[in-house]
Nucleic acid binder design. Structure first.
Length: 121
DNA sequence: TGGGTGACCATAG
DNA sequence: ACTATGGCCACCC
């Protein structure tokens, strides 16, 4: 493995790019939280920035599975930001992820932590 | 330039 | 268990 090391430059633009890359690395049927991504990138409290980056994810040419990114509670906080708000839950259910009341039921099961799954070189 | 906001998280009361 | 507050950093007005 060699592509798993995401490098962040001083440019915030690269930070956005890094977030997108991590999100794309999320396996199908899995989900992670903003905090985990920010923690993986080094910005512990930069969880908000991750969400901000996701907001710009739709502008990226490459597909970014933003629906696989939820908050620490497993709640689909960003669903309202999707083209059709219900699309987020739809996409998750398509990946065998059970969503109940805008929250992932088995979030702990399908939880995917980049720092755990991705190996550092 | 400065203040307010946000798809968050952790801690304290 | 729940609510309140701070922190964090980029973006917008």
């Amino acid at each position: 493995m060699s592509d798993n090391s995401i490098k962040i430059s001083e440019k915030n633009k690269d930070y956005f790019d890094a977030v997108f890359q991590v999100v794309r690395l999320i396996p199908k049927g899995r989900a992670t939280s903003y905090g985990s991504i920010s923690n993986y990138l080094g910005t512990k409290s930069g969880a908000r920035m991750v969400g901000w980056a996701m907001n710009a994810s739709h502008t990226q040419k490459e597909y970014v599975p933003a629906h696989r990114v939820v908050n620490r509670n497993g709640m689909l906080t960003g669903k309202h930001h999707f083209s059709p708000p219900e699309a987020m839950q739809e996409e998750l259910e398509k990946e065998d992820i059970e969503v109940k009341n805008d929250k992932i039921s088995n979030f702990k099961k399908i939880y995917w932590d980049p720092s755990e799954e991705l190996d550092f070189d």
